[in-house]
C-alpha cells in the first residue's frame, strides 16, 4: 500500500477572473522506502503539492491519503499530530530554532509529542550521530555551516521515525559539495532506513539520486519516470525539455 496517495488533487487560489490553478488534478502515489524527486519550472505547483501532502494547505478538490486515511476528513489537531508522528519536513532555509542547540533542535518534535526531555535528547543525539554530527550536538545553528544545518534539519525530520519525508529544495541554499552530501544522506535515509522521500528540487544532479522523477508543468504531472543512475535521470530530463 502506498504511504501517500493523491487523487485528482487540485488547488485553486483566488476567485472568479483572479483564480489561479496551482495544482490541477494530480494523481500520485509514493511507496514506502521510495525516493521520489519532483521537478519542474518555477510556479509549476511543486511546492503546492508538497504543502497539500504535508497538510499545511487544504486542497480545493481531490484527496490526499496518508497511511490509508484521507487528511481532508481529519481535524486540525489530527493533522497536526500526523505531521508530528508520520511526516518529517526538510526546508530550503533549514528553519532551525536559532536559540536551541543542534541536539535540542533535533529533539523538538519528540518534546512536542510529550516525550521526556532526557529521552528526547538521547534519541536526538543518536540521530545526529547517524547524520555524522555527533560532535556538534551542543552547537547553535549560527555556529554550523549550511550543510551541517541541513543535516541537523534532516535528523530532526527523522527523529520521530516518520514514514514520509517531505523535502522542499533541501539543497537550494547550499554549495555543490554540501548539496552532494545532503543528496547522499537522503538516499541513505530511503535505502538504509526505509523512509519514503518526496523531494522538490531544481537541481538535476540531486534529482539523479532519486528512484523516480515526477515532472510537472502548469500544475499538472507531465511525466513520471523511474530512473537508475545519473544517465537515466539526464535522459528523462531531456525528454521533458528540462535540459
Amino acid at each position: 500500500m502506498p504511504i501517500v496517495e493523491t487523487k485528482g488533487l487540485t488547488r485553486v487560489y483566488g476567485e472568479g477572473s483572479n483564480a489561479v490553478t496551482a495544482l490541477d488534478a494530480v494523481d500520485l502515489a509514493v511507496e514506502p522506502g521510495e525516493f521520489v524527486a519532483v521537478m519542474g519550472p518555477s510556479g509549476c505547483g511543486k511546492s503546492t503539492l508538497l504543502n497539500l501532502i504535508g497538510g499545511l494547505d487544504a486542497p480545493t478538490s481531490g484527496s490526499v491519503v496518508i497511511d490509508g486515511r484521507d487528511i481532508a476528513h481529519m481535524s486540525e489537531a489530527e493533522v497536526t499530530a500526523l505531521r508530528r508522528r508520520r511526516i518529517g519536513f526538510v526546508f530550503q532555509f533549514f528553519n532551525l530554532i536559532p536559540v536551541l542547540d543542534a541536539a535540542e533542535n533535533v529533539a523538538l518534535p519528540l518534546v512536542l509529542d510529550g516525550v521526556k526531555a532526557a529521552e528526547a535528547k538521547a534519541t536526538a543525539i543518536e540521530w545526529l550521530a547517524r547524520v555524522g554530527l555527533q560532535d556538534l550536538a551542543g552547537r547553535k545553528p549560527d555556529e554550523l555551516s549550511g550543510g551541517q544545518q541541513q543535516r541537523v534539519a534532516i535528523a530532526r525530520a527523522l527523529v520521530t521515525d516518520p514514514a514520509l519525508i517531505l523535502a522542499d529544495e533541501p539543497t537550494g541554499n547550499l554549495d555543490s559539495r554540501s548539496s552532494d552530501d545532503i543528496a547522499r544522506l537522503l538516499k541513505e535515509v530511503s535505502v538504509t532506513w526505509g523512509r519514503a522521500i518526496l523531494m522538490v528540487t531544481h537541481d538535476p544532479r540531486i534529482a539523479a539520486h532519486a528512484d523516480r522523477i515526477v515532472f510537472m508543468r502548469d500544475g499538472r504531472v507531465v511525466d513520471d519516470t523511474r530512473i537508475a543512475g545519473a544517465q537515466e535521470a539526464r535522459d528523462a530530463m531531456e525528454k521533458v525539455g528540462l535540459l
Binding site: 504535508g54 499545511l56 497536526t80 499530530a81 505531521r83 508530528r84 508522528r85 518529517g88 519536513f89 526546508f91 532555509f93 528553519n95 530554532i97 536559532p98 523538538l108 518534535p109 512536542l112 509529542d113 530532526r156 525530520a157 520521530t160
Partner: peptide
C-alpha cells in the same frame, strides 16, 4: 518563520 516551522513539524 520559526512559528511556521514549529507548526509544520507538529506544534
Amino acid at each position: 518563520h520559526d512559528i511556521g516551522m514549529l507548526r509544520a513539524i507538529g506544534a
